[in-house]
Simulated assay, not measured.
Amino acid sequence: MKRTSSIPLSPASVPVPASVHASVPDADADTLPPCAGALADAARDDRNFVTALARGLDLLRAFGPHDDYLGNAELARRAGIPRPTVSRLTYTLTSLGYLIYSESLEKYRLGQGAMVLGQRYLAGSRIREIARPLMQSLAFATDCTVALATADRHEMVYLEVCQPRGALVMRLAPGSRLPTATSAIGRAWLAGLEAPRRAAAIADLEQFYGSRWAPLRAKLERALRDYGRRGFCVAHAEWDRTVSGAAAPVVLEGGAEVLAINIGGAATRLAPEILDGNLGPRIRELADALQGRLWQGHG
């Protein structure tokens, strides 16, 4: 993908957690529904947009990585959907196998239908099959963790993780989540988007973070400028003060699908000069190689 000297951040110019499993620092789960955002609101203005279908998918996405069972009231709060509508949607999704209902708890958990969709995506794209050998080679060569991720609203979700031979420096696994705005891999994903999609995603992040957005925006602007100059983004002890990394986007299907890949480890070992002069260029090279192989695999 051609890199420009500067990537605009503003829609007008375009037409740290306690553990590594925490998702968005300082996010208030009681006031920030994970499934409501500017991106969805814009889509709902499209007359071809099927709101009922979108709301059903929003309910499935309301389940977090550590959730087991959720009731209609909690689903309504998280998704920002009226409770009577949620009741009809959960009934339908249960009938189709996407949710499982516990009569004793009067709550729902994700069903096999949701799992099958994820498995079919991974199998159909051959992403992990193609990426893993390249990622593992770099992990061994650098003694760092290498991971491939996709985006889910305000977070990045790991699809594959390759660890070095030594002790695990980052205890992350497929399914782990990192905040998009403050992680290198999230910033790289934003950098890889076409301008209109990036503007919409950033507007969604701004709505999500509210009053906390201004300092995050300044760092994101700098990261996007850095990507324009050198082809990778970095985050030194930001989303987690013990972790640092560098990342680059993997753009597929002419920009229709964008993933991101990162390399990282302990912040005490990976000083900014190591990220900038060594690991950043290496993850950029890996992203370019992976992009080419995945493009061939899709063709």
Rank of each mutant, 00 (worst) to 15 (best):
S6L: 03
S6N: 03
P8Q: 00
S10C: 07
V20P: 00
D26P: 04
A27G: 03
A29E: 13
L39N: 10
R44L: 15
D46R: 14
F49K: 09
L59K: 14
A62N: 04
F63D: 02
D67Q: 15
R78L: 08
G80M: 02
G80F: 02
T85Q: 14
T90M: 12
Y91M: 05
T92C: 07
T92K: 05
G97V: 05
L99Q: 13
I100W: 10
Y101N: 10
S102T: 04
L105G: 04
L105R: 15
K107S: 11
L110V: 12
G111N: 08
R120D: 06
R120M: 11
S125H: 02
I127P: 00
L134F: 14
M135L: 06
T150L: 07
E160I: 03
P164G: 15
A173M: 08
W189I: 08
A191D: 04
L193Q: 14
A195Q: 04
Y209C: 00
S211D: 15
E221S: 11
F232R: 05
E238V: 12
S244W: 00
A246T: 00
A247I: 11
A247Q: 01
G254I: 11
L259V: 09
L259M: 07
P281T: 11
A287E: 01
R293L: 14
G299E: 14
